[in-house]
Write a protein that binds this DNA or RNA. Structure first.
Lengths: 235, 235
DNA sequence: ACCTGAACACCGTTCAAGT
DNA sequence: ACCTGAACACCGTTCAAGT
């Protein structure tokens, strides 16, 4: 009797929603963030998306911080799986293309989640999967002949670029190219001659550019190569 | 009679607390953040520190986002005042030392507020003072012979480094050098041979280093010079 | 072991009311 | 014009109670 009851209970729950688990919580959090940004991830809405009550989550994660830690770890694990399949020589001068490929691959995966960079940055304790990713990158540099000291400085110099993202400096909204003369823009141009002149020319040369201030692929690669070239020279 | 009353009211308020103003609100927010981190800055506590009610703040700032925008602008204005007094040649090859000095000066001021980098990064609309700072840096590059296109790429490559800060990658907590053998550390070493080996050597060479993962001055300058050298070569 | 409802201590912000 | 108290719609999290 008791067995039948619990069986019925379990199966009725399974129909509407499988049992909660840490993994299901983390994946639901990623889905929620993909849909509505990281701000959409609240314990209450997360639970709701899983067909449960907010308090039920606390049986699988200690608190919200741990949800974010876990989300980072899930994504970094995915990155590790893909970069782990890269087979490229790493010895000597080959280190640079290997590192470049590893970083650009991480970038491709990371940017599937536009909210992810800021969450990666906000973590104070580093996820094991991120450490594993760094370990592989350091290994490539060591193969290339880097001393531990240079590898250390290199990791620092790369910063978040090691994982494939870089900060947006700013988004100037509507730039100087919006047809009719804008008085706000005009007074800005007077105070910011170099900035406005630069943006005007960049816009003119490439009207499709997003004013060049977003984390554009070409810009990312320019900065990355600047660093990798410099590191190779100090090798 | 009415005049006397209002005079009395004003003077009695002045004794305990001068009238609120946007500027006083922003300065109180900076003070609060300096004391307890940016998390300590809530509208309620901000008002309390000014001897007012939370709702009174809304007569001087539109909302909390605007408080943070204003805080960034106040700090960037302070930076502009100091870097504006730098008198260093900027023509030709001299651009590099001028840019370096400007950036390291900004860094000195910015790091008086340890919470500031993350707030600078979190702003979506850029403060006029930050734009003015960028404009000056672009001007230095143009004096150095940069095309607008290269200056644009350079600003991108520098990212937050243009303002004097770079991300902490992670803080590995207690590193491998803590005397007694730690089982957690041992299993980590097995999985992360390059990372642990690197940190062990860096620690050994410089026991005072903060495990090298904080935004250390020497590390910042290494990364900055790597970028400035590379940009000079592409000039 | 897992899940839940009610409650607590906070948030930012709106509104109507005061001077 | 400036300031305020009460209230609203949210948060994350604790607790005691359910199965």
């Amino acid at each position: 009797m008791k067995g039948l009851m619990s069986l019925a209970t379990r199966s009725s729950r399974t129909e509407s929603r499988p049992a909660l688990s840490r993994d299901r919580v983390l994946r639901a959090a990623i889905e929620l963030a993909d849909e509505g940004g990281i701000g959409a991830v609240t314990m209450r809405r997360l639970a709701e998306s899983l067909g449960a009550e907010a308090m039920s989550l606390y049986h699988h994660v200690a608190n919200k911080e741990q949800v974010l830690d876990g989300v980072v770890d899930v994504i970094a694990t995915e990155i590790n799986e893909v970069v782990g399949r890269i087979t490229l020589p790493t010895r000597g001068a080959a280190w640079q293309s290997a590192a470049r490929e590893r970083i650009l691959t991480a970038r491709r995966l990371l940017l599937r989640h536009r909210w992810a960079p800021s969450v990666f940055e906000s973590r104070t304790t580093t996820s094991p999967a991120v450490l594993l990713y760094y370990d592989g990158l350091i290994g490539i540099m060591r193969d290339g002949g880097f001393s531990n000291d240079l590898a250390h400085r290199a990791m620092h110099a790369l910063g978040s670029r090691a994982l494939g993202f870089s900060q947006e400096l700013f988004t100037p909204g509507d730039g100087p190219a919006t047809g009719e003369p804008d008085p706000v823009m005009a007074s800005m141009a007077a105070r910011l001659p170099h900035l406005v002149g630069m943006l005007a020319e960049v816009m003119h040369d490439d009207p499709d550019s997003t004013l060049g201030w977003c984390d554009d692929q070409a810009e990312f690669e320019f900065g990355l190569d600047l660093l990798l070239d410099g590191l190779d020279r100090r090798r």
